[in-house]
Amino acid sequence: MFKKWFTSESTRRAALFEGQVTPDSSRCVQCGICTYNCPIAIDVRRHAWTGQPVTRSECLTCGDCVQRCPRGVLRFERSELGSPRKA
């Protein structure tokens, strides 16, 4: 049980570290809940309008916007920056 928890927790942390918030504009209704909940005031909603991932280095990848979006617009997607370097 503990091992399972540990594995899922470490997977989650890896996702947060390596991921960038990526919108699916076809689901967004511009309600602004994502922007409202961003602790560093990134206008995530504008990213959802333009379809551009949040690539700003200030993004904490805390996941608040992803979790609070009531319509499943946002998800973490692996970014080039966070990928392990090739030898």
């Binding site: 209704v29 511009q30 309600c31 602004g32 809940i33 009531p70």
Partner: peptide, 13 residues
């Protein structure tokens, strides 16, 4: 955001 009116009513935003 007209769909967002519901979230204002519920107090989420």
């Amino acid at each position: 955001s007209r769909p967002g009116l519901a979230y204002v009513l519920s107090g989420e935003v």
